[in-house]
Amino acid sequence: MTPALFVQSAIIGVSLGSIYILMALGLTLMFGMMHIINFAHGAVYMLGAFVIYYVFFQGGMPYFVAFVASMVLLGIFGYLVERSIYRPIKGGIEPTLVALLALTTFLQAAGYPVFGQLDKHVPPVFPGTRNILGVGISIERLMIIPVAAALVIGLYLFINNTRLGAAMRAIEQDKEAAALQGVNVHVVNGLAFAIGFALAAASGALMAPIFKLDPMMGEQPLLKAFIIIILGGLGSIPGAILGGLMLGLIDSIVATALGAEPAFLLSFVFIIMLLLFRPTGLFGYAS
């Protein structure tokens, strides 16, 4: 591998990692607070991408408007899922998981008649390449990095500096004690659903101009996000960020050097090795 190729695949790795991080953050946030794994996260990613297809490409609206619409619409959807699925189940973890799995299957199956059988494509938003250290990198992929960074920083500030953010941290540490301080746990859980769904939609929306769109497109990113939150430690936000970057780099650099299948295999080998030495993940702790 030449140095130029290495630089190129490293930058693409960070870009890919940014997408993974946006997916994993919501998953880990929801797991930390409610101990559920949101299987529907991949389907939300897919819907987030299709909002771009319809609002930006078909509707002719500016990309920025479509991007915000994607996050807002799916954020609202997330809140409604809390209201109509999670809340009525009253904290039952297994029934919630089965219900979320059913929701995923429904959204994917409904995708074919609604969106059509053929793959969809969104034209580039930022065409062309940019020269970095002598290698050309697609601007589309580069732009993902600052957008994801802004969202991550925004989430971090929200969780650490606002009253609702404090309520989210309180629920994560002791749900009942949070309720006894006056936190409306249902509403704050709903907010976590909304944030998680909005971030998954954002990653789908960022990837829409790069990959083809089809109803199953969320499966691969969902699997990556699962790996990342286990790697980073379930419920840990710093863990999701570091884990996402690591997996993005492995996927890009190893895939460039050895091909996509070895990269897939290697990421699992890497995680199994890490978990052998640190069973709770990078930032996880035994409960």
Partner: peptide
């Protein structure tokens, strides 16, 4: 206000953050 059995503080929050949570509303 209810101080539950076993105290049930937020262990990963500071003392001040715990107090602020008490005044959540």
């Amino acid at each position: 206000a209810h101080v539950p059995e076993g105290r049930r503080l937020f262990p990963k929050m500071t003392v001040l953050e715990n107090l602020t949570m008490g005044a959540y509303r």
